[in-house]
Design a protein around this nucleic acid. Sequence first.
DNA 1: GAGATATACAAACGATCGGTCGTTAATGTA
DNA 2: TACATTAACGACCGATCGTTTGTATATCTC
Lengths: 210, 210
Amino acid sequence: MTHDGRRLRGSRSREAILERTVSLASVEGLDGLSLGRLAAATGTSKSGFFAHWRDKEQLQLDAVEWAARQWTELVVAPALRAPAGVRRLFALHEARLKFYSDGVLPGGCFFFAVHAEFDDRPGPVHDRIARAMRDWLKFVRRQVDEAVALGELAGSTDPAQLAYEIDALGEMVVPHSRLHEGQAVFAHARRAVLQRLRALCPHPDLLPED
Amino acid sequence: MTHDGRRLRGSRSREAILERTVSLASVEGLDGLSLGRLAAATGTSKSGFFAHWRDKEQLQLDAVEWAARQWTELVVAPALRAPAGVRRLFALHEARLKFYSDGVLPGGCFFFAVHAEFDDRPGPVHDRIARAMRDWLKFVRRQVDEAVALGELAGSTDPAQLAYEIDALGEMVVPHSRLHEGQAVFAHARRAVLQRLRALCPHPDLLPED
DNA sequence: GAGATATACAAACGATCGGTCGTTAATGTA
DNA sequence: TACATTAACGACCGATCGTTTGTATATCTC
């Protein structure tokens, strides 16, 4: 085969493998996934990985990076198109729910699967995952702060408290939607946050009624 | 050694192994935990397991059973000592939080760790886990129903909706408490459910103020 | 065009995986 | 007392794990 653009082809297959890794890891985790099965799933050889990554841990770290970028593109970015304040906060929640209900990842959420796995296992992968999730929660909290500053949420609002509630109500959709088929869980998660925000909002008409 | 009570000794070590299994599985999952490491942790030999269980799957099934029993004893039973209605509902939430903050299991929650693992992996273990979690949610929902019937929650309350909220706000304490050290997360989870219940309750004085 | 570099592979490594086999010793049953 | 059962073990099995090595070929650099 001529003209396969060695360097380009390399980064192409690198990206393809990472996408597949994140996808599979959302189902079986980053450590539960073995190189052998990953090779079979990507149509490559096991030893081929070591041309791209020093060891499995490097692949895992890059996979976390890739998943974080995907989350930013498909959840954070769309929400940023809504006007700052309580509407953006709710848009963020809805974008997340859409990410789950669209079935972007077969396991629902990469970070949910992977965090339970590396929860109590120290190391660089644990640290990278923890950082990503802390950044996410900080981002949610910043949206709360902004909404308070804009007078769109009661001044008595505890930002850390509300950020926890929004994250918890959104994240638990992942296991629940797998437990009880049907989209009732999505409605519950959406309504819970919506009613909570409306109750705190001096101008509830900024948000949909239901 | 004389008089070691063969039969009794068997069920003793059986229980001891199960307790250790549930404990370790709350950290690394049921499948992530290998028989070799489990043998080392219990001070027995790998092959000794097969005197008690046909294969690893049987051990996993018994471990789920054991964890469910532990949950009933340490969370459900204490809550049932509170008077039925909204107070029992909140007692249930608090008993769960106490289970987590007491560090009964080193990984926080057996079912959290294990559900993420068997989420999308069909089989008897998956089914047993799903049943346990469905039973739990049904139980929470029954407490909501009872509180509504007693007139301690507004008649407009959607039981499935509220049950989801309570479960989500309680369960997500597990990953969050590992992410940000400190007991702030416990306070958030407690206050979130408390304020939600007080808002729905015609007699808020049934519940603590804060 | 020569030499370094990068992609990708098959084959094989030691370690560990879940599981089997045969054995020993103590217990329960007759 | 005779015999089946049970707990527990060490040794070992084939399979798979993450990883190393060596090789072939195509691309980039000079």
